[in-house]
Design a binder for these strands. Structure first.
Lengths: 112, 112
DNA sequence: TATGTTGTTCTCGTTTCGAGAACATTTTTC
DNA sequence: GAAAAATGTTCTCGAAACGAGAACAACATA
């Protein structure tokens, strides 16, 4: 049951018809999603997330916070630029330096 | 086509059979997802995300920059321990030091 | 060699999706 | 205030797709 849809649509001030038109589906189809009468296909679900400028996980009302924990080592390995500082992505080098930097600091703290 | 599934499963070192068992579905069903022969139901998709400890958006290979990119400044403000190093969450202090550290380094690099 | 595991693809029965139609309400227009 | 249009809801029906099982080749294991 996709209870987020109604609030997302109202935030845009759209009728079901208008939403359906933008998605290229019948209004009864879209109404079915909001009422819980039907579930969209995965493609339709992705289209809806795009239209509402949100994530699929949000529409599905899934908890993602606990999933958003990043082990810096893994981050380094993945080579994806997930961390940003002052609007500029962190380079692998910067991240590597930071890891070394912090490890040393932690070691030093141990001896206090 | 859910190309992320294969890599997620291999990261766990599971066979398709094992994954299917954990999901409570037939292995042919799961194999269908990986091969692109079938798409899972939305419920099955959510179950898979839970099993792999990831997000639905990641499995769908959707751009979720807003979600998966972190500006370190904002991270500092939120005071949530999102970053982890060597199984130990990064303290606010460590993060603050790193930001200063990296800014200085970037400044120095500018003058080369 | 024989046995078990792994991954792939087909068929079949069932589920369920998506559209259209019909309807009651509400809103707009004249 | 009446007519017309828009809105949201729910039903039916045909088509599409799902999920399981079976059968298979490729590979590993005992």
């Amino acid at each position: 049951m996709l209870k987020r849809l109604s609030e997302l649509r109202k935030k845009k001030n759209w009728s079901m018809q208008e939403t359906a038109d933008r998605l290229g589906i019948a209004k009864s189809t879209y109404a079915g999603y909001e009422s819980g009468y039907r579930m969209p296909s995965i493609q339709a679900l992705a289209d809806i997330a795009d239209l509402y400028e949100t994530t699929v996980d949000y529409i599905l009302d899934r908890e993602v916070e606990k999933l958003l924990k990043f082990e810096l080592n893994e981050l380094l390995a993945s080579e994806e630029h997930v961390l940003i500082l002052d609007h500029s992505p962190l380079t692998v080098e910067e991240l590597r330096d930071f890891i070394a930097f912090t490890r040393v600091k932690r070691e030093l703290k141990k001896d206090l």
